[in-house]
Design a protein around this nucleic acid. Sequence first.
DNA 1: AATGAATGAGATTTCATTCAT
DNA 2: TATGAATGAAATCTCATTCAT
Lengths: 193, 193, 193, 193
Amino acid sequence: MPRPKDHSKVENIYQAALQLVIRRGFNEFRMADVAKAAGVATGSLYTYFRNKEELVNALFLDTAQQLYSSLQVEKRTETTHYHFMKIWTSYYNYCFVHPDHMLFIDQYQHSGFLSDETKNEAKLHLKSFDDFLHHAQEYGDLRMLNLEVLKALILGSVHEFTKLNIEHPGTMDFHALETCKEMIWEAVKERRA
Amino acid sequence: MPRPKDHSKVENIYQAALQLVIRRGFNEFRMADVAKAAGVATGSLYTYFRNKEELVNALFLDTAQQLYSSLQVEKRTETTHYHFMKIWTSYYNYCFVHPDHMLFIDQYQHSGFLSDETKNEAKLHLKSFDDFLHHAQEYGDLRMLNLEVLKALILGSVHEFTKLNIEHPGTMDFHALETCKEMIWEAVKERRA
Amino acid sequence: MPRPKDHSKVENIYQAALQLVIRRGFNEFRMADVAKAAGVATGSLYTYFRNKEELVNALFLDTAQQLYSSLQVEKRTETTHYHFMKIWTSYYNYCFVHPDHMLFIDQYQHSGFLSDETKNEAKLHLKSFDDFLHHAQEYGDLRMLNLEVLKALILGSVHEFTKLNIEHPGTMDFHALETCKEMIWEAVKERRA
Amino acid sequence: MPRPKDHSKVENIYQAALQLVIRRGFNEFRMADVAKAAGVATGSLYTYFRNKEELVNALFLDTAQQLYSSLQVEKRTETTHYHFMKIWTSYYNYCFVHPDHMLFIDQYQHSGFLSDETKNEAKLHLKSFDDFLHHAQEYGDLRMLNLEVLKALILGSVHEFTKLNIEHPGTMDFHALETCKEMIWEAVKERRA
DNA sequence: AATGAATGAGATTTCATTCAT
DNA sequence: TATGAATGAAATCTCATTCAT
């Protein structure tokens, strides 16, 4: 029996690659560096990924999956308002703890490095969030607006606030955060007659 | 800083570089490609810019200046609401026509390629917008919130909607746009007692 | 030298390697590919051959032995002319059926990959053909000429015609083949006083 | 004005590449080695050739052109026999002086490295030799046989004798050479009624 | 003995920058 | 000043070989 393909190594590679993406400013990361940081040989990267492009795509998918999973959508038990706040906060918290993940996704989303397939597959992880928004609209709790537009505003706001945190740490204190949540809710909530 | 020997050539270079940034997926653009697209020799780039980094920084400044100038802040003659709508719309329109400018700024803003000096200088062009927001807060028309946070929300929303336009052209129709403006206003406006 | 632990496996490896040499254009064949095609693990190749060089040498010997055995030299019972035609034809037929074998030998014969030992050992399988030529010269049936030169012409002609068959299938029809045999015989036969 | 692309450098590269092909046994030559031997930087090879494959193809064409130009076909002024001997001898002499050229052509002719286009283009340089053979057949001086077959025998014989020269220098002495010429002529000449 | 994942030296190729013209 | 061929350091990728299982 050969050594079984070590899938924890793939995790190490993802971690290392992400760290480097951040450190080297999102512009470029070198395969040799990824290998070294992951504690494997350069050539080993190519047992897991056919080339650099495939590694980036896989890393993107893996990261997007984690990032979007942080949108804690649950079965409807509370008011839309309550649920919305909870989801937004959980997403914000994830971005706060892992700004690198969010930045990576944000940066590469529109880059030519990613295949359309990857981009589409990444979006699948937003399905339950889509459903939440859709149902909330049907209940008359959210503005009737193209879902993509709604999503862009909600997730985009988190992204922007996270970038702010990176550039000016401390700006987003407790009070600011509460206000932000409130603002976004005011933006998206339906105004009843 | 470019030595403005021949300003039209520098303009060509900027144009060419921006086009390439878009085409090559924001990841990398080659000096040779920029030169060819700009209709100059590779070596000539180095008469205008000391190296690639300087070219990127100069391009960033030039683009940011144009982009941020589109925030048509005027002297206060109308209500804050009216003025806000006008500014947001003019910015949105610029992004709609030049999505590449906006994407370039958005992508490189947090990249290690830019010097802090460049980043700061770029922000100077937001000074009049800062002033507008600040005064509007003083008049009690906008939420009392860290200016950076307010800005992040306002400009960020335009950026997100522009990205939407790129990915799904047509999503942002007239109705959606009006609603978006309304949403952002609802988010940032001060609720009086 | 292969350790003949499992002779059928070595045969598989030879077959696979030859197939690959053909497919990959005689330039390079990869150990991993040979292993896969032979249905064994990469590492297993190294139980049979110390390294790639040894595999090539062994393959060369094996193939040369088969190729040269097709020169059906028998005890002198017929005229030299009859015997010559028979031998040439049997060699031609083998090459026609196994052009890959012939090409492999032809390509690697002068390549630095083979040890002198291998080259010499391969030539031993031409011993009986050498004898045939030598005796035919003594009988005054073949030109008195350095044996190597004679061999070069006789075997070389078959090789050339075989290559022709590969490049332009059908060129060597029955008539052409008969003429070729005749030509070579005219070339090598002794003209008596 | 930039440095004009130095086409003598291409010649250097060809020379260097050929030398290496020989030295390293026709199996492989490294771009870095070619560059060093040609006295240029590694990267410079890529200003002349897009990649290794293109270099090999160009080298093949260049070498084939030289090799085949040595077939000194002239206007018919003498007997076919005389002319044939002259051509064969001039080709043999070229191969004797440049065995490396001949070996390179012979080795790569059937290798997957060359494009079909290259192979076909190389053959164009045999056009005047084809014409010579064709006319000689019409005059009733050469056997009526597919031209390709005739060529294979004539050129192939030279190749084989050249290889002999490499392996056993001295074998092809003056006497042997004269006999060889005679043999080939006996093989290809038409036997009149 | 057999496996095939892992290795890493070494190959090819790229591209920012220089420099002869 | 302008040119673009030339450079070579540094990147990506390959593949013969090793070795833990």
